[in-house]
Amino acid sequence: MPTINDAKELTELFERRLVFVMGKGGVGKTTLAVSMAFAAEAAGKRVLLAETEDSQSVGRLFGEPGLTETPISVSKRIWIARINPKAELEAYTRFHIKSGFIARRVTRSRLFDYLSEATPGLREIMTLARTWRWEEERQKNGSPLYDMIIVDAPATGHALSLLRLPKMLIDMIRVGPIVSQIRGLQKLLKDDTKTWLTLVCLPEELPVKESLELINIARDELEIPVQRIFLNAIYPPLFSSEEAEHLKALMSEEESGPLFSAVRDKKGLRKVLHAARHQYSRRRINTQYSAQLRAEATGPIIEIPYYFKNDLNLEDLRRIASNCLDPEKRSQDDVHAGKHR
């Protein structure tokens, strides 16, 4: 099964204005969102990397745990922010209520507090509204303030309720000024020249299952298809299948077998063989679920190798950006996990 290693897969991604990075908990959404930001920056884009209110991963990574909705610069062309639906709702209210006096009274009232918590979907719609407003922000010369806005989305279930909202609210509210605005937002989300959903997946059973479900819901129900899938943390191939067979035979060998008899450090040999077996077993599982994903999902899949580290730091993420997400390199990259099977 060849990996489609087309540079276009990435250049097209970096031409979007708004990119959601989705996926099950623990699959590496933040890893991909940040690496994508580094890669887009390298491609000359001005990038805003935003996390949603329930997350602190981006802020923590950049040493900014108290991140707010005001973007701060963390690199030459990268800004980071954490979406705060309440602040957005206040901004929205101030914008829509002509009288500053009443606007202040409203935003300070307990009713406002309550409704902002309890009104169905208000937090979610304000999260989306924030990305929309960023998309519309312009520099003095009229060009966009951010070329690309990357959203490190919440875990699948919450992310779906987020994206379901515009339609739900349009049905629910039906008329009025807010509906026409939500329609505008919906238009942005459905415009695939501007907005893309991307999905991070691990080559394991549950993440693949959940990814396939999400792909279907996105296509059929949201009508915003998943455009790119990042298959994360793939164990790079190490042993050929002949070597694996050879090792298997050695492992089942008794201490009295030929190899064990020839080696004094029998305990050491067991440890070494155990480590080897672990890696080719993981590789085998990875290959099996990668194949399932490839067979059942449509659209390009971009592979990211496992880095044999528990926690990736910014340097590692820059490495992922340049090794796996650089369109120039990608077309000639032969160390990449996907090329060897």
Partner: peptide, 26 residues
């Protein structure tokens, strides 16, 4: 490890490529 890789080399039972891979995996 008590010299397992050296001992494995000495046995000549595994080719050098596989031995390197075992080292890497470990």
């Amino acid at each position: 490890l008590n010299g397992v890789f050296e001992q494995l080399t000495d046995t000549k039972m595994l080719d050098a490529g596989l031995l390197e891979k075992l080292k890497k995996a470990h």
